[in-house]
Nucleic acid binder design. Structure first.
Lengths: 240, 240
DNA sequence: AAGTGGTCTAGACCACGGC
DNA sequence: CCGTGGTCTAGACCACTTC
């Protein structure tokens, strides 16, 4: 007997899922003890190394803390540092209602610099989507994102007003987003941006230019955003 | 026979060290194949699981890439994203000469908000060090950092003009810096800051407020910095 | 002393990659 | 096809924490 039985997941992942589900459902709270390796091995009918593998994976992801001699415990609620999240998700964390107004959605062939950042030849046809982001009824940010039209042909006619772009990419195109590299600086609002964001001209803005990569390492989306610095705060964690 | 022989390191760490040493010495370059699990097991006289454990650890740290069916390879040189670096170190990466002008170095008891961020009681005596950072002869940033005077009594009389604060803390006080949490937004330069940074009043600045933690998890340094956005670009990597 | 995680063994079969 | 990493077994001893 070996490997999976009921479905095609490896045993260690099944164990992880059981634990994760118990945490989501509230059965396990921060600080609570998780079943020990030996208990898990017995309950799930696997060897000790497999139970260990499951817990080690959860520890690497930060959802669990292991203390020798003591046990394995649910990690304290993690603040989402350096997490790539859609605007919708960011607002959800803050418990704010999110809305997006689509200002334009066109195809351009003349943004060669953006094309280069997406590793596409100059002159490539790019979907250019400009959106005004609102949280709690207040304008929050002005975001322009670019994607290859060849790669996402139907996207222009998708219900972009409703769901987030991230979720459409993930569900409709099976795209798995993995990471983003971002370039951050400060600028002053020009007249149009100021008007859209309902602030005075010359007010300071955070400018974030990000290249979002898929799990396969492909540069997939380019986003340039201007964020009201009185409404938005970037939180970053760095390591030595 | 089991566990270590020649020294008190676990076998999997000894294997890792052998590989790391071979990479440092140039014997292994980016893209080169590492010995397979089975080879390592045979060479180091350990079981397959132990050799696997060694490679899995190296992969987690990003020094190695594993491809099923193909092998394990030295990872491409990693660009240092989200790395906590001193100003001096940042300049060194860019090959720019770094200089700092100390504007003031005093003790304050009235910065209760900063004290709170360092987990000190309000009214604590704090060293307050204000420095103008210059790179390539141009003013770059205005940084004010705070430390507990009780914890670093001699620091005020250290040669701060010369070495970086980081290196003094690490060498003189044996302090091991581990991470920093940073809050980033944009502001406009006020009159004094503008003059010091040699820019026009109202020009956009990146404001970074960071709490630097020691390896023991203790909040040790608080830094508030204003960075010329025309000279400085923040690079960040986020993960999904 | 009892229980925990950390390390380790000596094998096994599977899925995948490159030739 | 053969070699690779991925998963897994059924145990073992050690170091540590908690009681």
């Amino acid at each position: 007997m070996q490997q999976d039985h009921e479905n095609d997941l490896p045993a260690y992942k099944r164990i992880q899922n059981v634990i994760l589900k118990r945490m989501e459902s509230g059965g396990l709270r921060a600080g609570d003890a998780i079943d020990s390796e030996r208990q898990l091995a017995k309950v799930h009918q696997v060897s000790l190394m497999t139970a260990r593998h499951a817990l080690a994976g959860l520890e690497r992801e930060g959802v669990v803390v292991r203390r020798r001699g003591a046990g394995t415990f649910v990690a304290p609620p993690k603040i989402h540092f350096n997490k790539l999240m859609s605007f919708t998700e960011q607002m959800a964390v803050r418990n704010l209602p999110a809305r997006s107004k689509i200002l334009s959605c066109t195809v351009t062939e003349e943004e060669s610099e953006v094309a280069a950042r997406l590793a596409l030849p100059p002159g490539s046809r790019l979907i250019r989507l400009e959106r005004l982001r609102e949280g709690a009824g207040e304008p929050f940010a002005l975001e322009t994102c670019y994607l290859s039209e060849a790669e996402f042909p139907r996207l222009r006619h998708a219900p972009l007003e409703r769901g987030s772009l991230f979720s459409i990419l993930e569900s409709e195109y099976g795209l798995e987003l993995a990471q983003s590299d971002e370039e951050i600086d400060a600028t002053n609002a020009d007249a149009r941006t100021a008007q859209l964001l309902a602030i005075g001209k010359g007010q300071p803005l955070l400018r974030i230019r990000q290249v979002i990569y898929s799990a396969k390492g492909r540069a997939t989306v380019y986003v340039r955003g201007f964020y009201r610095s009185d409404r938005h705060n970037l939180l970053i964690r760095r390591f030595r």
